[in-house]
Write a protein that binds this DNA or RNA. Structure first.
Lengths: 227, 227
DNA sequence: CTATCATTCAAACGTTCGTTTGAAACTGAA
DNA sequence: TTCAGTTTCAAACGAACGTTTGAATGATAG
């Protein structure tokens, strides 16, 4: 039982996961067939059922492989910030930066397929399949709680309900932005090379989100007027 | 050729479109089968191919039925604002209000299936299928151009490239918010009755978007620092 | 009533789906 | 070399897919 004996075992599974990551993005979970996946991975058709049990289990494995470390990393980034702050409340932009930064750092390394996965995630968030939703909820719950607590400490004057909605908006902006980058060129003939400058995108996105989070509260008057 | 002879012709098509709107949302375009659609609509399996030609053509019809009037309505709202302004530049929040208001007014009337459609749209935006993307682009282009022009007049000091990105962010926030309302209760145990108060949601969303659109420009320093 | 048109229907088309099977190929340890 | 255990493979399973067909049904006009 040397190292060599372990690695090849995981190699087939990794090839399948990589292929699934790419093809689930292109065709959706239901649209990407087992034959497409195994052909892309260069493995036998039966390999998915052998290694993962079923297509559903493969979907879960694809999501878990990246989401688990991603959310762990998001929490770790927050931990680091709070440690540095030594008890003082964090600046909202620092909290946003920790969350956004983790996501974008994943996009930057295209070799690891992180870019594919982030875009796949954007699709997954709006997937109405109950099993998918339950899984996503389960995988995100810990990080969401931590960030909600951090925002609450940073903005004690912001009503809790308002904060929940603004977190929802921020989360939506982030995931949509990363998933549907093509929409930018829908709005304007945007040079595609700009779209992949993750640093610049991070700055733009963070500026937008910070402003949105700190926006003045919607007045009761504006609701009345609209009604 | 009386009125009675025309109406039943359209009834079967309408039943199919309604069923497709609901089931495309639940299972995706590829996941919702012809047999599911026709069973839900209470029509024969062959009816879709007879009335629409193919499943792809049905998808296009489902999108067009609501998107065409929706974007027409968005443009009309902007026309009305500019007429009232009589040459003066519009306030950014007024432009945002016109766009957001049209979307939310559609959600409000649940009878017409508008709610289903809006959520379906959120999924469609992140669909990577090229035909879908081309169709969406084609259907949205006129409204996007008009709104971009309006924002440019309202915010002449905002660089064009920055505006494009912020419109992208705003569009993403809106569509994601409407598509993935369940994520709110992921962030917090939110009372579901709040989620459907479209007026309050409109106020919250508009406040968030206005602040984001008017955010201070991301400084070169912040990009440098991050790198 | 009859002829004409549009629409509906049950049945079947060939294809592809996710999964299963049992034998073949390969592995490391005895 | 033998052997148990793991992984791969070609082949096939029944089910469901989108689509087509031709006959039955309906309504309209002459």
């Amino acid at each position: 039982m040397s190292l060599r004996s372990v690695k090849p075992v995981h190699e087939t599974q990794t090839r399948i996961l990589d292929a699934a990551e790419a093809l689930f993005l292109l065709h959706g979970f239901e649209g990407a067939s087992m034959r497409m996946l195994t052909a892309r991975a260069g493995v036998n058709l039966a390999a998915i059922n052998y290694h993962f049990g079923s297509k559903d289990a493969l979907i879960e494995a694809v999501l878990r492989r990246r989401l688990d470390p991603m959310n762990t990393s998001r929490i770790a980034a927050l931990d680091r910030l709070e440690e540095q702050a030594a008890g003082r409340p964090l600046a909202p932009e620092a909290i946003i930066g920790a969350f956004v930064g983790t996501s974008l750092r994943m996009i930057e390394d295209a070799r690891g397929g992180g870019r594919n996965f982030i875009r796949l995630l954007g699709r997954t968030y709006t997937d109405p399949d109950k099993r998918i939703r339950a899984l996503i909820g389960q995988l995100y719950a810990p990080a969401m709680e931590r960030y909600k607590a951090a925002f609450t400490r940073a903005l004690p004057e912001l009503p809790g309900e308002e904060l929940v909605w603004r977190m929802h908006f921020m989360f939506g902006t982030l995931s949509y932005t990363l998933a549907a980058t093509d929409t930018v060129q829908l709005i304007a003939g945007c040079k595609p090379e700009d779209r992949y400058d993750a640093r610049l995108l991070e700055a733009r996105l963070t500026a937008f989100l910070v402003a949105g989070l700190m926006a003045p509260l919607p007045s009761v008057a504006s609701v009345r007027k609209a009604a």
